[in-house]
Design a protein around this nucleic acid. Structure first.
Lengths: 220, 220
DNA sequence: TATGTTGTGCGACCAAAGTCGCATACAGCT
DNA sequence: AGCTGTATGCGACTTTGGTCGCACAACATA
């Protein structure tokens, strides 16, 4: 099959593995497709193995009461979802949900092979650790943002991140921020009146990046 | 020296290492004392190695503008601070601060030996991974708490956790929660009026655990 | 066209949290 | 006792975020 080639080409991690290890990683592993909106790691059937995202974007969110949610972090191609992995190793079982924001292509290595790779290959170990580090850093920054920043600052940061244009409903933005649509709408209206953005249906264009940046980085 | 004995007795992780690996861990490693209030991992001199806490408690906090702070998680004896470790492996550099809440005794393994142990010993790998998992879980729960719970709920949970008595100033509690003393004082006064706690100087006694639990777990 | 569904706009109102200023209480020290 | 630094109490005020209710616009489908 062509998958090993695709892996090799796209992801530096696998490039540094010796051929024998690559062959091993292929054995028993499989590629899965997940449709947009589906959940790549269902909470009730955990521990399917070590998964690497080949294409698409995964949102990892925490669900709260009354249908609210916060986005913990996002997974991009080449990254791994450690929520499922760490219940292979640590016995922690998380209650976070993963949601496919687009159609996904995932590559999954079964636990036994994962453990063997971990034992034998330093590059692979480094990759896994760096993924852990990245998630820790993401979450720390998120805590900081939620604890110390106002919603308008966080919203401005998101808009800048997706500049020059953000697509999606205001309700989706609210979910990322852990708030409700009303608030996002209110804040966006404020931004629009100040000439910072232009609003359309499922579409926000950034008109004044500097102005938004001033908001996002404002002290206090 | 007596340290290896102490390690063996107190910490299951080291019990499962073969003697050869224990000897190796001892080489080049050292024990450090850190006074209460000191910082076991200074932000400007990172990467001293892999550290395990032998005794004491470490608060890992995120500092925000205007002197505010939030507590990200706590380290207890037998746990490891991955903030310093993960910059050995991943290249992430965090901006979180570690503060010794009591006098500390720490055991530090230099990077080279840490990497070798990681390569050779599965039990050690599992330990390191479980630490990562634990921190991830801690942070996820924290995000959930900050995003969805009211301050009175989080405060009640902290008091219950330290039941039957919490020692320390209200300002310290405020730092744990990421708020200011005024708010904590107000909430505690409310609890006192409802007969849930008894307040004293640097001292809060829980009178009605069930009542507090009802607050901590209240929906919405 | 008719009919839902989904996204958005807005206004009024409420509650939680943060801010400010100052008064008071306690502990340690000289 | 008197001084000093820290911990606490308390009241008034502002801001932010959340809630509710409803109207309207865009899009899809029948």
């Amino acid at each position: 099959m062509d998958i090993s080639k695709q892996l090799l080409e796209q992801f530096p991690i696998f490039q540094s593995l010796p051929p024998a290890d690559i062959d091993e990683a292929m054995q028993g592993s499989h590629v899965r497709r997940v449709a947009k909106g589906g959940s790549p790691f269902s909470t009730n059937s955990p521990c399917t193995g070590f998964s690497v995202l080949l294409s698409g974007t995964v949102r990892v969110v925490k669900l709260g009461a009354s249908g609210r949610e916060v986005e913990l972090y996002r997974l991009q191609p080449g990254e791994s979802c450690l929520i499922s992995t760490s219940c292979l190793l640590g016995k922690a079982n998380y209650t976070a949900a993963a949601i496919a924001q687009t159609d996904l292509l995932m590559f999954t290595i079964p636990p036994s092979i994962f453990k063997r790779l971990l034992a034998r290959n330093e590059a692979f170990r480094d990759f896994v650790f760096s993924q852990f580090s990245q998630r820790l850093a993401d979450l720390m920054m998120l805590v900081e943002a939620i604890a110390f920043q106002k919603l308008d600052q966080r919203l401005a940061a998101i808009l800048l991140d997706a500049a020059p244009e953000t697509r999606g409903s205001q309700a989706q933005l609210a979910d990322r921020l852990g708030t409700v649509r009303d608030i996002v709408g209110r804040l966006l209206k404020n931004f629009e009146q100040r000439g910072l953005v232009a609003l359309g249906r499922e579409r926000i264009r950034v008109l004044d990046p500097e102005g938004l940046k001033a908001i996002a980085e404002r002290p206090s």
